Amino acid sequence: MFRNVYLKNPATISLDHYQLEVATNGSKYHFPFDDIQSLLIESLDSKISTAALSELAEHGITVITCDSQHLPSGTLLPLGIGGYYQHLKTLNLQLALTKRFKDRLTRKVIKQKIHNQGTVVQLLTGGPATVLNKLADAVLDGDESAREGVAAKIYFTTIGGQEFNRRLGNLTNGALNYGFSILRSCIARELVQFGFEPALAFNHHNLQNPFNLADDLIEPFRPVVELYVFSQLSAQSNEMLSSENKAQLLRILSYEVLINNQCQSVQYAIHLVVESLWNACESQKITPLLLPKVVTLQVHKNEE
Rank of each mutant, 00 (worst) to 15 (best):
M1C: 12
Y6T: 05
H17S: 14
Q19D: 07
L20I: 04
L20H: 05
V22Y: 05
Y29K: 13
P32H: 04
I36Q: 06
I36N: 08
S38W: 00
I48V: 01
I48L: 01
S49I: 07
A51P: 01
A52C: 03
L53R: 08
G60L: 12
V63P: 07
T65C: 04
Q69H: 09
H70F: 03
S73C: 02
G74M: 00
L77V: 14
L79E: 04
G83N: 05
L88H: 02
L91K: 12
N92C: 04
Q94H: 09
T98I: 04
K99R: 15
F101I: 11
D103H: 13
K108D: 01
K113P: 07
N116T: 08
Q117C: 12
L123P: 00
T130P: 09
D137M: 01
A138S: 14
R147K: 09
E148D: 06
E148L: 07
I159A: 14
R166Y: 04
R167P: 00
N170W: 07
L171G: 10
T172G: 01
A175E: 08
A175S: 12
L183I: 13
A188Y: 11
R189C: 11
V192Q: 00
G195L: 06
G195D: 01
F196C: 12
F202A: 03
L207H: 01
A214Q: 04
I218P: 03
P223A: 06
A235K: 13
N238M: 01
M240V: 11
S243E: 06
E244G: 05
N245Y: 03
N245T: 05
K246Q: 12
A247V: 06
R251Q: 15
L253W: 07
S254G: 05
S254N: 13
V257C: 12
L258I: 15
N260Y: 10
C263R: 15
Q267L: 14
I270F: 06
V274M: 13
E275P: 02
W278N: 09
V294T: 13
V295D: 02
V299H: 10
N302K: 14
E303I: 10
E303H: 15
E304D: 15
